[in-house]
Design a protein around this nucleic acid. Structure first.
Lengths: 161, 161
DNA sequence: ATGTATGCAAACCATTTGCAATGAC
DNA sequence: GTCATTGCAAATGGTTTGCATACAT
């Protein structure tokens, strides 16, 4: 069994545990959604997940998607993000190297940014009167390809003068 | 002139500069919104801002509120946050000590968390192929008053056994 | 058998948009 | 006088909800 399949088995077990403890039913829809989420890394939104489910010939209602996502957030198998826009993004949480996020304010692209040292510093912070469970660091700015384009635009504007 | 009034004068000047450079009109609505935002510290959402404007007997449409907020975000006089919920929060940016955010996942309260050392570490990070302009650190967890309540609930559950 | 979870469609609600009227320049 | 900005009301679009049906237990 390759590593990816092993991960999918493990998260399935974890999900089963969670559903059992919380007296929730183990429906095929819930497992199908979890499985799809763990077939590909990276961020996704609800609409693309909905379409991907359909492509897999396992159509579920949007209501069920949201319901299941809520469970997956609660048992920390999925993380949720909101990068300034009015749209939520999600990503798998298990076996996904924790990373921060770089968001380009020009093209809206999101890049992962891994910094183990920074991660440790934030995680080891002792905070008064608060018990942290997870955190998100979003760094906004301009990515290289956008800043290159902006430079070219600027040069062309100067030439015209 | 007290300090608060001075700050309001300065941000007004900064806004005027921005509007001039970008050839936008200097409407009373825009200045009234900026002024209101800078009369009180802390986070606010659009609805409370809308109501506060009305209370001040300066009613503006929601469209204008959103329009103006966009300008204020662009000239960095206001910061925008999304704490997991489907609602945006804002806060003044000028003369507001930069801070991180602690979000209680039980009561949804948001607390400011100031840590100068952490701030400096994050701000001084050199990131490859990316030019950062601002960042948000959101720490999710359970606040003290909620964890106290949870403990009491747990004890009462045990007594019943 | 019981009641939770599903699909569907309608409702919700923050935000955006189109357009006529206003007013900054 | 011109055209950006406003207010209004309608539209948008992601998310939630209510309810009858299906199905996990």
């Amino acid at each position: 069994m390759d590593k990816e399949n092993k991960v999918r088995e493990i998260v399935k077990q974890k999900f089963t545990e969670y559903l059992t403890i919380n007296k929730c039913r183990k429906t095929p829809e819930r497992y199908a959604i979890l499985d799809l989420i763990y077939t590909e890394p990276g961020h996704f939104d609800m609409d693309s997940l909905y379409k991907a489910m359909t492509e897999r010939h396992f159509r579920v209602s949007r209501a069920t998607l949201y319901n299941t996502m809520q469970l997956l957030l609660e048992c920390k198998l999925v993380l949720k993000h909101q990068f300034g826009k009015n749209l939520s993004f999600y990503e798998r949480a298990y076996n996904n190297d924790f990373h921060h996020h770089l968001i380009c304010t020009v093209c809206n692209n999101v890049k992962e940014y891994k910094d183990l040292k920074l991660k440790m510093i934030i995680q080891n912070k002792k905070i008064k009167q608060f018990t942290p469970s997870l955190y998100n660091l979003y760094i906004y700015g301009i990515c290289n390809s956008c800043s290159r384009k902006l430079k070219i635009d600027k040069n062309q504007a100067n030439k015209k003068k």
